[in-house]
Nucleic acid binder design. Sequence first.
DNA 1: TTAGATGCAAATGTTTTGCATTGCG
DNA 2: CGCAATGCAAAACATTTGCATCTAA
Lengths: 166, 166
Amino acid sequence: MGQAEYGESHDRLTRFMKANGLKLTRQREVILRAFLDSGDHVSVDDLLALVRQSSPGVGHATVYRTIKLLVDSGIAQEHKFTDGATLYEPVGDDDHDHHDHLICTRCGKIVEFENDDIERLQEEVAAKLGYQLVDHRMQLYGACQIVDCEGLADKESGAVRLPRVR
Amino acid sequence: MGQAEYGESHDRLTRFMKANGLKLTRQREVILRAFLDSGDHVSVDDLLALVRQSSPGVGHATVYRTIKLLVDSGIAQEHKFTDGATLYEPVGDDDHDHHDHLICTRCGKIVEFENDDIERLQEEVAAKLGYQLVDHRMQLYGACQIVDCEGLADKESGAVRLPRVR
DNA sequence: TTAGATGCAAATGTTTTGCATTGCG
DNA sequence: CGCAATGCAAAACATTTGCATCTAA
């Protein structure tokens, strides 16, 4: 989210590659571009389809391997929802980073939100139990009251821009 | 979790079966007993192994099918963590129901906790976005400061009794 | 008796891996 | 040139399903 630009992410990827003795291949560049163009919440399969529009020869194993690289280099974020394949979204360049998801149980639409109070309480809980918080997953599942929700196809689930909920 | 007793769960299962025109088979009783005996956070594979100690002939498909029944009848709760198989735990008879998990990133130990403030905030967030909250998943991943943690085998992850964190 | 349950094997869907070949640096 | 990356096919997992057989009610 947050309109990650290609150049910036490309630089980041290049740096990551260099730092780890990896190579910047044609496929990796194509995958990166497709990933950033896609917007958000794509599965490896989605991404493969996008990539193949311009580069039909790319194998799915390459996409699996590359998306992991994007995660490790801080370009992509991984989300495992209750079912289906793992989804990935670009990490924002801006400050909207710690967000969670609310998934509509009727149409599968994914809404992103952030709530600093919850975030803070999570830290507190972990600390009180004697843990150093490393990561968290929070997903809310709910039915939306909006009319157009029900009609949405399962695949037609565009995410909504970050509301800041207080 | 709240020491679910066999008799009680058995009754519940019987009622559920009757209500849905299903049958209470030998296998289902064995699986139920093994599940309750196990304590908590078992995978279908764990459960199958337990079941086969007393009933070697049971097939894994049966366990998959039965554990779903236990979930539907309110005896078991399902948890999908970041990796590995889905884990199940008995639902407590007592009032400790809405709890979440903190998973140690070093040893995999699962600590349960409940925090009403977070719970309330989740409801609030959903409501403000126009959703009726149906379910939620919250998992904290952290490294514990306790000495004996590091040594624990990956499989040796016993869950700790519900601390109420405020 | 009969609808539902079982056990097996096979199918599914997602992700990983082995390996011969290709290509970046 | 040499090591890493690719593409393919196959393997690895977790879970589901088809089907002939069994069994609870």
